[in-house]
Design a protein around this nucleic acid. Structure first.
Lengths: 216, 216
DNA sequence: TCCGGCAAGGGGAAATATACCCTTTTTTGT
DNA sequence: ACAAAAAAGGGTATATTTCCCCTTGCCGGA
């Protein structure tokens, strides 16, 4: 199966220190070569569009990047190059992101505090067998399919309202900002309190921040 | 000045992929060797206490680590080993953290998306001249000394109150929780609104989260 | 030592803002 | 055309915010 040429890997990561260092690490494994490095999803996609016939064995994709992040890049890959194998790399173990990366086709998800040995194993595994999941990730997948039935879904208007609720505006001001009656806003509030199992606007703010609806 | 032996560097970073890769990068520069790597501040300090006479030319210290983070480690170094030169490494440019790292004696602060060339320059500069600051960091330092006069300082009771305010408790409940009259709580609230230039409890919650008084 | 100031803790009262419940009108999808 | 949402209103009870005042204790200067 394997030819005498080395496996071709691409790194997409905005942390230049990391990506350049990682290239050295990968080289030290012997069987691999890093053919390209990109500092965000945008330049990587540009490259793919220019060079759509290049042979690529594996992509190491950082999740947190400027311009075009790992998730958006993964979504593009799912639609345009589902043949490419991707291992997502990230510093955080945010369940939501991990699930999304995998449902968009990532073949593995590694934290950056993974040991080089595991890392090497993951690369080999994805290239040979097609996937590699750590216990952390498998656990999340199982956890997800079990709790997927009662997922809370917020409508667009509700999201807008929540964002406004996370400011010092009064409900009355929010209503006029959204061109709705204060009473309608009152309705949004009440149904959200019910849905999210909270009792006060403070609870709503905490929920919004925790679930990354608003950023601080 | 320089002997024929290489400069001795220690890396403290929980991202094993990064730290091992970085070691390779540093080696590739030629003049340096990584004599030890640690995965958090605690094990690093343990090492220092066991080997207090080891010659160390430079420490590369990650800011975000489990167990004992970069800031706490820096504080320990300031008190116990102010002779050691440290370059802080981080993915985020949080002004507060940067300032704190530097006031605790860090000789440089680099983002992980720094290019390897700048990185090499920073290492050389810190070892030879004693410090290296990027424009980003210098800008923050200037910005800081200009606004340092009106620094907000919160008292312990106020902090406790703020933490309670970031829950769904009413002020009355907070008062009884803190064994104070609701009126006293009202006084805290009013003076904080004034001090922090906010108008509502929502503003207080946002302030608390932004300034890491409470965590979400 | 006395006195003024100041900070912490507490109070009254009034104006808004929030929260909750229930009903009516309008839109919308099919 | 009809049921289901969405939008809006009425009314009321609490909570929050604002403003001004009072006591007590402590500390530093005259």
């Amino acid at each position: 199966m394997k030819t005498n040429s080395k496996r071709k890997i691409i790194i997409v990561d905005d942390h230049l220190l990391f990506s350049q260092s990682l290239e050295l690490l990968i080289k030290s494994f012997g069987d691999y070569e890093v053919i390209e490095r990109f500092e965000n999803g945008k330049v990587f996609i540009d490259y793919l569009e220019q060079n759509n016939s290049t042979e690529i064995d594996l992509i190491l994709l950082d999740v947190n990047m400027p311009v075009l992040d790992g998730l958006s890049t993964m979504q593009w890959l799912k639609d345009n190059r589902p043949d490419l194998k991707v291992i997502a790399l990230s510093v955080n173990d945010d369940e939501e992101i991990i699930i999304k990366m995998i449902t968009n086709g990532a073949k593995g998800y590694l934290l950056k505090d993974t040991s080089p040995e595991i890392f090497k194993e993951a690369i080999e595994c994805v290239i040979e067998k097609g996937f590699y999941f750590t216990e952390l990730v498998s656990g999340m997948l199982i956890n997800k399919v079990n709790s997927d039935n009662k997922k809370i879904c917020l409508k667009e208007k509700e999201i807008v309202f929540i964002k406004h609720a996370c400011t010092e505006m009064t409900y009355k001001e929010i209503a006029s900002e959204m061109c709705l009656s204060p009473k309608t806003i009152d309705g949004y509030r009440e149904s959200l309190f019910d849905k999210l199992e909270i009792k006060t606007r403070i609870g709503l703010v905490l929920y919004a921040i925790k679930h990354k609806i608003v950023f601080v």
